[in-house]
Computed example of a mutant assay.
Amino acid sequence: MLIRRVSILAVGIIALGSTIALYKPTLFSHQVIAQTPTRSVTRPNRGKSGGWLKELNLTSQQLQQIKEIRHQSKQQIAQKSQEIRQRQQELHDLIAGTTATKEQVRDKYNQIKLVKRQLADIQFENTLAIREILNPEQRQKFADRMYKKNPRQNPPAQHN
């Protein structure tokens, strides 16, 4: 009986750790840049001069279109994010409890993975929509910015 409880606890810890690892920013999370509304919280790599959008030299029409893209998916993104937080709490409770079976814990973990995938799909679709309104030069800058980590940590490669 003790071995069973220890095994369930170990599986729970692994599942929770995997959930947390999946929740961390991934390739798709970098695409959130395109539709995440700015907040009063200071974020790294965001200049006070208007951030990365200014780097793209967008027209007022392009800015309006991006604003509309972001607005259209804002509710969906918020709902999916809330759903992820709720299901992660439920997973935590299942892992911490003594009555859930391994299958119940695994099912909850799979539910979280599904919702995270749905959120990533929404974000990716926003990225594609924004890409469509950019010219080739802007697309290049957009892609460079989206996939670039902290510029101070990864200086541009010098070509000889």
Rank of each mutant, 00 (worst) to 15 (best):
L63H: 03
R106K: 10
T59A: 00
Q82W: 01
K113H: 08
R87Y: 01
Q89Y: 13
N110V: 08
S60P: 07
Q75S: 12
Q75N: 11
K113S: 08
K102N: 15
K80P: 08
K113Y: 07
L63Q: 12
E132Q: 11
E137L: 10
Q138H: 12
L94I: 08
Q62H: 05
I133Y: 01
T127I: 06
R152V: 07
N57H: 11
S73N: 13
Q138M: 09
R70F: 05
R70S: 14
K113D: 11
T127H: 05
H92Y: 15
K80H: 04
N150H: 15
I122N: 00
D144P: 06
D144A: 04
E55N: 06
E68G: 06
T99G: 11
K54Y: 11
A129C: 06
L134M: 13
L128Q: 08
I112H: 03
S73Y: 08
I84D: 04
R152H: 08
F124N: 03
T127Q: 07
Q111L: 11
R106E: 10
R139A: 11
L53P: 03
Q65T: 07
Q62R: 05
D93G: 14
Q104Y: 01
K149L: 09
V115I: 01
D107M: 09
D107E: 10
Q88C: 10
L119A: 00
Q65V: 02
F142W: 07
I133D: 01
S60M: 06
K67I: 03
N135E: 07
Q79S: 15
D93C: 14
L53V: 02
I130T: 13
R152W: 11
A129D: 09
E132W: 01
L134N: 11
Q62M: 03
E137D: 07
K80A: 08
Q138A: 12
Q64N: 15
R145S: 07
A120P: 01
E125T: 04
L134K: 05
F142D: 04
E137H: 05
I130S: 06
